[in-house]
Design a protein around this nucleic acid. Structure first.
Lengths: 361, 361
DNA sequence: GCACCCAATGTAAGCGCATACAGTCAGAGT
DNA sequence: ACTCTGACTGTATGCGCTTACATTGGGTGC
């Protein structure tokens, strides 16, 4: 069922009555081979089911023909549906409320599109795409040995590792605000996007206080968004009665902090640094019986699918994930083509998506 | 920024004052090297930022250390949010109803988990995971040349291509009912799952007719599910007044057919072969003012996220996608370890998830 | 003190392919 | 008829690593 008898150039060459160089040429530079020869060789290739070894090709050609994308690792699995998968037969569970989340949120919503964009662009350029998920610097080394260029989602790997890798192959860093490293950098316009949505929220907010859920203090992205909120607050006149929370990027955090704030008085707006926090805020507001958006408007950031499907649909700032993926690959290709070009530091535009949770004025 | 000066074993060996064989041993079989030597070599590896070339290793070792997963290709991109991504700055759009879908449904909901499972398992076994998306037999050849084993989602590649590849390396076919090919096969228990959910639907159905949305006639999966419905109908007494539709797997199809059926009289149950169809049925029922589940119950199949978030939440049969991914890799590893083992043909269990659209009795 | 053995390391031979370089040969030019 | 040119094709080398086999040198047992 799986004999390790893969044919090589030698087999093809012998059978076609040519040298291995000709076989190689037929595959790499077909126009350099006489048509009759080419056809004969291709026929043998077909007949033998010959597939060139990427290893040999990579070694001889000093390039692997693959590009890498390194994303944060998966969370542990803890899924009631999945857990069953070890048994047999059919199991029936009661999940009437649809609460049995499959614990994937972040990954599926955020990275799948990135991956799609990257893969599409890699394919266009004739490269394969190899993805790796962050599980320590070791795993990225493994990836690095297999590719001609590497796109790394920020915060998955230490700065030192990035620098070390960058000395070996083209690297582009994705997202994250930092860009002190001597590598190409690609991010979204967190600050402007956040400012835009925050200004809108402040403009249409209800009568209560403003709550800012600003996210982790050690996240460069969160920091830029925080700055965007400051811009918006400043633009709306000196000091607002804004409450502020620095913390996790989780839905639970959003719910807790919003509930706490509500205990201190009515809220007129919740401005969250990501969609998870905003969804948590929605949870708390609905629990407390506060009408969204009539009494309190809510905004998020990221544009995950769950925000769209929330009730009410969540106003947010959509990141162009697919475009990010595409651009990351393009940046990589540009550097591969021209190693000495100036370090790029691109910002991708974002889109404020106005939905029911904070509708147009 | 990207000097092509990657250090090799020779550099490390020279600097550490050993032979390249010793360097290789330190990395492959550390226990075979004296501790003092090992430490000296590792120090140099660290210092030079040495990363072994996967190509050279693959060529010399006759294995790439990578496994492949081949999934259906991406759909064309047609996304109002994404389309903006070529400009700059911040754009604002009005999507109050949350209808600006990002056109990813299938991919994100279905394959991300598969990918996660596969990757997790590959990582555990010390393999890298390479994913490829179906764009013709050519692209899978490219993948095949890079990996030690290949998991292929059925219906992405022709049977001939699968056979050809299987002659070269271990292959496992995922999903799909067919299994005539001489390769390992892995699927879910479509029939039993469908029978279980259909029996439940028939048991709790409303007073109207039963509509079966059976999916494409050329899909092996759909055929198995169709059989499951037949089983359920038979178990519920000979002939039911069931209407039947064979066709696409899309939401629009579900909506259309359900609307047509409703025009002919009230429905008591809609049993769909996948979640997209079921969601379409929900659309049509809500349009028509039919109460779900009071008047008509609805069931789907797959367990995509959107089913959980639908209103009402959709009763469905969840596939253990992550477990499928894991098992696919395990199957591959088993065959790599023992090429002559018997062809495996495993069925994974499914979970009927009862939600509001067809609640427990 | 000598033959032996084993642990540690070195030597050398490829792995399958790309490619620089060296033919070969038919037709063009003189 | 002879050289020259260019289109094709063959020869030979090496990419960076793994690994079978050879070598070395210190114990061990007698």
């Amino acid at each position: 069922m799986a004999p390790p008898n893969a044919p090589t150039v030698y087999d093809v060459a012998e059978r076609a009555g040519v040298s291995i160089a000709t076989v190689s040429r037929v595959l790499r530079t077909p126009e350099a081979v006489k048509q009759s020869t080419r056809e004969r060789v291709l026929a043998v290739v077909q007949e033998l089911g010959y597939v060139p070894s990427a290893s040999a090709r990579g070694l001889a050609g000093r390039r692997t023909g693959a590009l890498g994308l390194f994303i944060p690792g998966h969370e542990a699995i803890d899924d009631p549906v999945e857990a069953h998968a070890t048994g047999t037969g059919v199991r029936i569970i009661d999940d009437r409320t649809g609460s049995a989340s499959r614990h994937r949120g972040f990954r599926a919503d955020y990275f799948d599109e990135l991956l799609r964009g990257a893969e599409l662009e890699a394919w266009r350029s004739g490269h394969a795409l190899m993805i790796g998920a962050g599980r320590g610097d070791g795993s990225i080394d493994d990836l690095a040995g297999r590719v001609d260029g590497l796109a790394i989602v920020a915060s998955t790997v230490s700065d030192e590792a990035v620098e070390r890798l960058a000395a070996r192959l083209p690297v582009v860093l994705l997202a994250g605000g930092r860009n002190e490293l001597p590598v190409d950098h690609l991010a979204v316009d967190n600050r402007a996007g956040m400012r835009a949505v925050a200004e809108h929220a402040l403009r249409v907010r209800g009568p209560g206080a403003v709550l800012v859920l600003a996210g982790p203090i050690d996240s460069p992205d969160a920091e830029e968004r925080r700055q965007g909120v400051r811009d918006a607050l400043a633009a709306h006149g000196a000091r607002l009665d804004a409450q502020h929370d620095d913390g996790l990027f989780t839905r639970d955090r959003g719910r807790e902090r919003t509930a706490e704030a509500l205990a201190g008085g009515p809220l007129g707006a919740v401005i969250a640094a990501n969609d998870q926090l905003a969804l948590g805020a929605l949870d708390a507001l609905l629990d407390a019986g506060a009408a969204v958006p009539e009494q309190c408007v809510v905004t998020g950031f990221d544009g995950i699918e769950e925000a769209r499907l929330a009730r009410p649909p969540l106003t947010t700032v959509a990141q162009p994930m697919e475009a990010l993926g595409r651009t990351a690959i393009r940046t990589l290709l540009a550097r591969i083509a021209e190693p000495q070009r100036a370090r790029s530091d691109e910002r991708m535009p974002v889109t404020v998506v106005l939905r029911e949770s904070c509708p147009p004025a």
